[in-house]
Every structure is written in structure tokens, then in C-alpha cells.
């Protein structure tokens, strides 16, 4: 009987240790509701919104958000997805420099309002092909409190190295569909 109780205790101990090990560190804990925008008019923000919806998290995406139209409301976190779309920027009638300026303004306003800033790259290597992508990533990640990427985006270890070099917490999820799990 004593032996069974001991085994049960040990099993519970192991399980609780696992739970502790799996819990994300405080600095990478994300809290909703989330406000999402894109730096480069790629569909990343829509994807975060859809993934959050599927996971039951509250997220609002707005690809035209500016510092002037930003209202903190009940939002706790601002997610800015990096990576550009020529078609998307064409659709919005904008360019990468204007996009960076817009997003930096929104980030500044959000930080002043006390929101946590997440720099995200969730569309894989397809959004890491040219200088516009690089400019978007550099601008967003430099301002981020936390970096959120999918495995494909970090397939060459770029974001791991970047996070280490700049001492920023990094969250890596398998793919865009899994983002909802960390929101």
C-alpha cells in the first residue's frame, strides 16, 4: 500500500514538473485581446485573426491602422506581422517605406498605452525573399518585446540568432494554424 502511494506521489510529481516545464516563461506569455496589423500588407494579420478565432481568442485585425486611428480600448497586445506582398501593397496603394512609417507610429502609440508589442513572421520563407521583406522584418523586430515566428520562417535560424543577439524572447510555432494556441 505504502509502495503504491509512493509510486502515485512520484507520478504526480513528475507530471507537475512536466507541467512546470511546459508552461511558457512569463516574458513570452501573451495576453489578449489582441490588435493585429501588417507591415507590408501581406495576409499575415488576417491569418493571425483567423487562427485566434479558431482558438477562441479575441483578436481584431486592421491593415490600415495608424497612430491616429489607434485606440487602445481593452487591447493588451499589439501583433505586427512582417513580410511584404507586392500585390497587397498594390491593393492598398502604398509602399514599404510608408508601411514602415505607419507601423512604427502604431507601435509607439501602443507602447505608450501599455500594450505588449509582438513582432511576428508567420508566412514562412515566401515572405523572406527580397529587400522589402528584409526592411519590414528589421523595422518590426527591432521594436518588438516578443518575437513570434513559424518554423518555416526560421528554417535557416535567422530569427533564433536575431532573438539571441538582441536578447528578445522568441516563440516558435509549427505553422500559422498553431498560432492560436499561444494566444
Amino acid at each position: 500500500m505504502k509502495k503504491t502511494a509512493l509510486m502515485l506521489f512520484l507520478a504526480l510529481l513528475v507530471l507537475s514538473l512536466c507541467a512546470v516545464a511546459e508552461a511558457p516563461p512569463e516574458e513570452t506569455k501573451l495576453e489578449g485581446p489582441y490588435l493585429v496589423t501588417t507591415c507590408g500588407q501581406s495576409p499575415g494579420a488576417v491569418m493571425v485573426g483567423m487562427s485566434a478565432m479558431q482558438a477562441g481568442a479575441k483578436a481584431t485585425y486592421n491593415n490600415a491602422l495608424t497612430a491616429e486611428t489607434f485606440e487602445p480600448g481593452e487591447f493588451k497586445t499589439l501583433i505586427v506581422t512582417a513580410g511584404t506582398s507586392m500585390k497587397g501593397m498594390g491593393a492598398a496603394g502604398t509602399d514599404i517605406n510608408a508601411e514602415i512609417e505607419r507601423c512604427l507610429g502604431v507601435i509607439k502609440a501602443a507602447r505608450e498605452a501599455g500594450l505588449k508589442i509582438v513582432g511576428a513572421h508567420i508566412e514562412g520563407m515566401a515572405r523572406r525573399t527580397d529587400s522589402s521583406d528584409a526592411a519590414s522584418i528589421e523595422a518590426v523586430m527591432a521594436e518588438a518585446d516578443v518575437i513570434l515566428v513559424v518554423t518555416d520562417s526560421d528554417s535557416d535560424g535567422f530569427f533564433t540568432a536575431y532573438a539571441k543577439e538582441h536578447e528578445k524572447p522568441l516563440i516558435v510555432v509549427k505553422d500559422a494554424l498553431e498560432i492560436g494556441k499561444v494566444l
Binding site: 488576417v46 483567423m50 500585390k87 498594390g90 491593393a91 492598398a92 496603394g93
Partner: peptide, 25 residues
């Protein structure tokens, strides 16, 4: 967006992306 995420996550080896249709083209 949902279609792209589902197929990339569950089915395709090479991801399928999504693009907005440009209004000016």
C-alpha cells in the same frame, strides 16, 4: 487565409500562401 493555413499545416509539403487582389490592377 484559413484555406492556406489548413493546407500548409496539414497537407502540402511546400506551403500555399495567400495574396490580396490588388484594387488598381
Amino acid at each position: 487565409a484559413m484555406t492556406s493555413m489548413m493546407l500548409t499545416s496539414q497537407t502540402f509539403r511546400v506551403p500555399i500562401g495567400m495574396e490580396f487582389s490588388p484594387k488598381a490592377l
